[in-house]
């Protein structure tokens, strides 16, 4: 197999694919990952805030049944394997994007898979904020909304950034998985050439590029989180 993988035919094929298809694939992967993360944060951040603020002892207690529903929905969405979730949301994808195939179409299942995950990450970050600091803000006459926007979120920025990095990398992995059912990007190339046409070298290149992307996101995220944390100076 190794012999075949590095035969001159395989090498020239791989080179051709590398030049012609990889730039677009990397772009598609980045584009899908970033957009999906952005949409997932738009949904997940407020939800995560509700999970903490709406608790019985939170800054804005919500009815217990509502909290129960939020938790059940999040747990349900998080327990469906991504591959199956993608198929389950086909009708929704078709409704929003018009098709279930292609780069843009894969954003819908990615967002649906990622926002409950992000809500949980936001929840853990916000719980790290000391209740004493929240109490101090209350003693100064802060409204629940002010506590959320001026205390809880700003105070947990370093932790939110660390968790956002985890989210981006998870979504990157999912986006590659979406290649199986027609999503674009590096995942598609790895599956189409590597799995269906036995061009293992192409698959390896796709994997190496994914690893590189993960590495870049992780270093960037860690650096941002450290830099933003004023407790460390």
């Amino acid at each position: 197999m190794l012999e075949k993988m590095f035969s001159s035919k395989a090498l020239s094929d791989a080179l051709e694919i590398f030049v012609n298809e990889f730039p677009v694939a990397v772009w598609e992967t980045l584009y899908v990952t970033v957009l999906s993360t952005a949409f997932a944060i738009i949904l997940g951040l407020p939800l995560g805030v509700l999970l903490v603020a709406g608790e019985k002892n939170g800054v804005y207690p919500l009815p217990a049944w509502l909290m129960q529903i939020l938790n059940v929905v999040i747990n349900l969405l998080r327990s469906v394997p991504f591959l199956i979730l993608m198929i389950l949301v086909f009708p929704l994808t078709r409704l929003i994007v018009g098709t279930t195939v292609g780069t843009v179409a894969s954003i819908v299942p990615l967002v649906i898979a990622a926002f409950p995950f992000i809500a949980r990450l936001v929840e853990t970050s916000l719980r790290e904020v000391s209740p004493n600091i929240i109490e101090a803000a209350q003693s100064m006459g802060a409204t629940p909304f002010q506590i959320i926007t001026k205390v809880m979120i700003p105070e947990s920025v370093p932790s939110l950034l660390t968790n956002a990095t985890t989210a981006v990398i998870t979504i990157l992995g999912y986006s590659a998985m979406s290649g199986i059912i027609g999503g674009g990007g590096l995942g598609k190339i790895a599956i189409n050439y590597g799995y269906y046409r036995y061009k293992y070298l192409v698959m390896m290149i796709a994997v190496v590029l994914l690893i590189l992307l993960v590495k870049i996101f992780q270093s960037l995220g860690t650096r941002l989180a450290t830099k933003s944390d004023k407790r460390l100076k």
Binding site: I133, E135, A136, M140, G141, A142, T143, V157, S228, R231
Partner: peptide
């Protein structure tokens, strides 16, 4: 009204409770 009153009755704490990111 309570919020307004709290501006006139302020508090300091054992743990200082400053906003660490400000």
């Amino acid at each position: 009204e309570l919020i307004k009153t709290r501006r006139k009755v302020t508090m300091i704490f054992q743990g200082f409770n400053l906003l660490m990111q400000r």
